[in-house]
Design a protein around this nucleic acid. Structure first.
Lengths: 138, 138
DNA sequence: ATTTAAAATTAAAATGGTTATAATTATCTA
DNA sequence: TAGATAATTATAACCATTTTAATTTTAAAT
């Protein structure tokens, strides 16, 4: 587990307070936050941070592969987990849960048969989570 | 293959010119268009159509399950193909290609093990398409 | 075919998330 | 510590999408 300083050095990123706080938050909280959630969280540490900085930093992280971006409906979410994985999205409570994925080889094989080189994939599974299944007895 | 009149009747949709033209375009052209592409295409048939109508109609179609919506990066795309399938997205030329998917049972099974009921899935595979692979010899 | 009520469309303005701008401040390297 | 570069800030601008209110069209009944 490398520390922030090392990671930023590797990516030629200056160590600034906004970047450090945003990085720490998004890596420590696997909640797939919106930009606003990131902003509100980091604001507690850096009261003067601006929204523009949150977007700038997140976009820079995405550019460097430190963060992933995706949409749930019309909402843009950010994900500090860059290890390939899949998402379960609850259609009732909106929760997004990470899950391992073992089907990458199959996908890659199928793609190669079609002449494609696979660089990345995104698999979202929409449904009802266990908690919502329980609480819908009414 | 049902005709538009029948489909709209089933969905309790009044038969209006904008709806008919948008429906015909999006079902006949599997190009995963943006709202603007739909607007420009339908404008050829209905010069006075407004952008608001394109959005209203597309949203109504989505609500009724006649059309699906997804994002490629920051761009919103619409898909008249509502049969479950996957998308190959070329990172070079931007093309989005449909493909069959036979792994639904596996996904459904894995989800059930976690206590989830699967309603829908979305699988995007990002890579380089055969055409772009050829033309990148420079 | 007319009439009427409900629904859909239109043009325009408003909205909201995101990005661009220009000035200020912080970071890094020497 | 100084100077050059890069990042941050506040603000304004942007642009895709939605809302609003007036007008037009549709569907059903006469």
């Amino acid at each position: 587990m490398e520390n922030i300083e090392t990671i930023f050095k590797e990516k030629h990123l200056n160590l600034t307070k906004p970047r450090i706080e945003i990085y720490k938050f998004i890596k420590a909280h696997p909640i797939h936050p919106t930009a606003e959630t990131v902003y509100r969280a980091v604001q507690k540490k850096l009261p003067n941070i601006s929204f523009a900085t949150v977007y700038n930093v997140l976009n820079k992280f995405i550019e460097l592969g430190l963060v992933k971006e995706f949409n749930i409906g019309k909402e843009t979410r950010f994900d500090g987990n860059t290890v390939p994985h899949i998402h379960f999205v609850c259609l009732k409570c909106g929760k997004v849960e990470d899950a391992d994925f073992s089907g990458y080889d199959k996908i890659s094989e199928a793609a190669q048969k079609r002449g494609w080189d696979v660089k990345e994939f995104s698999l979202f599974i929409y449904g009802i989570c266990p908690q919502c299944k329980k609480s819908s007895n009414h």
